[in-house]
């Protein structure tokens, strides 16, 4: 129908620079380096026990970071995840111990404890999304509300008491094994696959990237921008709830002061190290997994070498700065 009027462009030649390569795969390179370091510097790294310890600890970060990846891909951020974990962690024991509702049978309590807290944190996530979309509050401010209030809610619900418990049925999600690996690792793997598939194949995944990449254009192309945003915060809330349950199951105790403390930073760091642009429009689920593993390895190595926890925080900050720098290199290249 149309005539060509210009000379067609020459076939493009792909030239890949080292920095561009690093920007794409920097997290994988960093992870490999850290594993090598761990092999050399820490004793007994190559054992099933060490593997399980690391996987057990990383599962919570990964689950929260998955939800965070979606939020960040829309150009937002969710600071409330750690506090939402505390809320889920506070509610679950009260449910299976029968403190909130009378239990006709023990399994009812476990069923309630595995579902209700997650739905509650999902609802809090919806509240975050509602603040962001209805009142156009900046996500960092909107989710700050629950970062502060959420932990307060968890403390009020439990009167600030530590809830210690032993409930094997519930604690399967933290202490159970399947084919030699902890149950929560399987849960994490399943969620990673689900999220990766959803980002690639579903309408919702494409719309998340469009909203983060150019919100005005997405709106004019018929993308329900507010709905997409509300949903990512709900998903982030759900993920935080699941992670909260896993953490208290591992510890056999729920302390509203400590569950999920600082998790928002770990999750954001995992997302950033994994190569998801903090400005939105890009989501790397696999990257987030690798990013979380990098953070876990840093934490593990520092712990194994006897470096205090406080110093580990500085290392984490360095990681985020490095990741963001690499991302920028990738943009320019």
């Amino acid at each position: 129908m149309l005539e060509r009027v210009a000379v067609p462009a020459a076939p493009p030649v792909r030239r890949v620079t080292v920095t561009a390569l690093l920007a794409r795969h920097g997290a994988v390179v960093a992870l490999a380096a850290l594993i090598l370091l761990a092999l050399v510097a820490t004793p007994n790294f190559l054992s099933m026990r060490t593997l399980n310890v690391n996987l057990t600890q990383v599962a919570g970060i990964v689950i929260v970071a998955l939800g965070m990846t979606l939020v960040v891909a829309t150009g937002g951020i969710d600071l409330s995840v750690g506090s939402l974990m505390a809320i889920a962690g506070a509610l679950a024991p009260m449910l299976f111990l029968g403190r909130l509702v009378p239990l006709p049978a023990p399994w009812v309590g476990v069923a309630l404890a595995l579902t209700v807290p997650v739905l509650v944190t999902g609802a809090f996530g919806w509240f975050n999304g509602w603040l962001v979309t209805r009142y156009r509050i900046q996500p960092i401010v909107a989710t700050l509300v629950l970062l502060i209030a959420g932990r307060g809610i968890a403390q009020v619900v439990t009167n600030g008491n530590l809830q210690a418990f032993r409930n094997p049925a519930f604690q399967v999600i933290g202490l159970g094994r399947l084919l030699g690996l902890p149950v929560q690792v399987w849960l994490m793997a399943a969620l990673v696959l689900l999220f990766a598939w959803a980002m690639r194949r579903t309408l919702f995944g494409r719309q998340i990237l469009a909203v983060g990449g150019n919100e005005r254009a997405a709106r004019l192309a018929g993308v329900p921008v507010s709905r997409v945003k509300r949903r990512v915060y709900v998903i982030s809330g759900l993920c935080a709830g699941v992670a909260g349950l896993v953490v208290i199951a591992i510890n056999s105790a729920a302390d509203a002061n400590l569950v999920g403390l600082g998790m928002e930073l770990d999750a954001i760091a995992a997302v950033a190290v994994g190569g998801t642009a903090l400005s939105g429009g890009r989501a790397r689920i696999g990257g987030t997994l690798v990013g979380a593993l990098v953070i876990q390895m840093v934490r593990y190595i520092l712990l194994a070498l006897g470096v205090p926890d406080a110093a580990a925080l500085v290392a984490k900050a360095g990681l985020i700065i490095g990741a963001v720098w690499l991302q920028r290199q990738g943009r320019v290249a």
Binding site: A217, A218, A221, G222
Partner: peptide
Amino acid sequence: AEGIVPELSVRENLTLALLP
């Protein structure tokens, strides 16, 4: 400002309105 989503591919941009 209101048309393209620059980082997304030609494929994603072209089908953005059709996707549903």
